[in-house]
Design a binder for these strands. Structure first.
Length: 264
DNA sequence: CCGGATGTTCACCT
DNA sequence: GAGGTGAACATCCG
C-alpha cells in the first residue's frame, strides 16, 4: 500500500467530509467488502448517518458514522492493498502511486460513498484492498508513529524470526510496509536477517528513533517511495553511504534490499 | 511469455 | 504453537 504514510494522506483527505450525511454506498465487486461472504446490503446501516470522525491506525483508515458529529454508531475500515487510491470529489492526495494504476479508469472504482455534499471513491485495480464494516482491528499492534521503546522491545524480544519479518508483522507494530522497513533498517545500520530478539537495548533504541524520524521525513517528502535507499533497489547498485554492492534477499516473503557494508 | 512489484490471507508444511 | 512457503487476487512493466 500504501503504507502508513499514504494511509495518513488518505485519512486527511476524508476530513472535509465530516458532518456530511451519507446518502448512498456502492461496492463493486461485492467481494471488496470483507470478510468475504458479507453482503453490501449490510452497509445500509450507514445510510442517513453523518461522517462523525476519521482516524488511522497502521495502514487502515477508519471512518466513524453516527447521528451527529458527536457520536459514532458504526465504523467503516478501509485497507488499500498495494494499488488503492482514494479520491474526494474526484481528486486525491496522491496522484502517482508507485506500482499503482497507470491510467485514469473508473472501472477500477471499488467503493463509492455519496454524501449530501461530496463523493468519496476508492479505486483499486488489483483489488488487494478492501472495506470492512465495524473493522476488526484487534490484530494490530501499536501504531508505528506512537509505539514506545518498551513496546518495541517487547514485540521484538518475543520472536526469533528475522528482524525484517517482525517489522512487517502488523501485530508487532502497525503501519510499516516493505519500502519503509528497508529504508529504516538501512538508515540505522541493522541487518534485516538478524534474529529479532538478538537486538541489544541500544539497538532497539536506535531503531525506535529511526522509525520515528524516517516516517516524519518521508511524510514531508511525499511518500514511502521517497527514501534515501529507494533507488538502490536494483542489481549492481552501490550503497550511497559506504559504496558496497546492495544485496537482495527475501524475508517474510518480501524482497529485501540491504547493504552488507554498513548493516549488521 | 515470465517474473516481480508499497499487501493480506489462507492452506499446507516443517 | 511458531514460522516458512506458495498461491491467490489483477494489472503493469521490463
Amino acid at each position: 500500500m500504501p503504507e502508513l504514510i499514504e494511509a495518513a494522506y488518505y485519512e486527511s483527505a476524508c476530513q472535509p467530509l465530516i458532518g456530511h450525511r451519507l446518502d448512498e454506498i456502492v461496492v463493486d465487486p461485492p467481494e471488496f467488502l470483507r470478510p468475504v461472504g458479507h453482503s453490501p446490503e449490510e452497509l445500509e446501516v450507514l445510510i442517513g448517518l453523518v461522517l462523525a470522525r476519521t482516524f488511522r491506525i497502521g495502514k487502515v483508515v477508519v471512518l466513524g458514522f453516527g447521528p451527529n458529529v458527536g457520536s459514532v454508531a458504526a465504523e467503516l475500515g478501509i485497507r488499500f492493498g498495494m494499488t488503492g487510491l482514494l479520491f474526494v470529489d474526484g481528486t486525491g492526495p496522491i496522484d502517482h502511486l508507485v506500482y499503482g494504476p497507470q491510467r485514469d479508469d473508473s472501472s477500477w472504482d471499488r467503493a463509492t460513498l455519496r454524501f449530501a455534499h461530496g463523493v468519496l471513491t476508492i479505486r483499486d485495480p488489483r483489488r488487494l484492498g478492501s472495506i470492512e464494516l465495524d473493522p476488526d482491528l484487534t490484530g494490530l499492534g501499536p501504531d508505528a508513529t506512537s509505539i514506545t521503546v518498551s513496546e518495541l522491545r517487547a514485540g521484538l524480544g518475543s520472536t526469533r524470526r528475522a528482524l525484517k519479518a517482525a517489522l512487517l508483522d502488523q501485530s508487532v507494530l502497525a503501519g510499516l510496509g516493505n519500502l519503509l522497513a528497508d529504508e529504516i533498517l538501512w538508515r540505522c545500520g541493522l541487518a534485516p536477517g538478524r534474529p529479532a530478539s538478538s537486538l541489544e537495548t541500544r539497538e532497539v533504541t536506535a531503531l525506535h528513533d529511526t522509525i520515528a524520524t524516517t516516517v516524519d521525513e518521508l511524510t514531508e517528502r511525499g511518500g514511502s517511495h521517497t527514501g534515501d535507499s529507494f533507488d538502490l533497489r536494483t542489481p549492481e547498485s552501490r550503497c550511497h553511504r559506504c559504496g558496497s554492492i546492495m544485496v537482495r534477499d527475501r524475508f517474510g516473503g518480501r524482497s529485501t534490499w540491504w547493504c552488507p557494508g554498513h548493516q549488521s
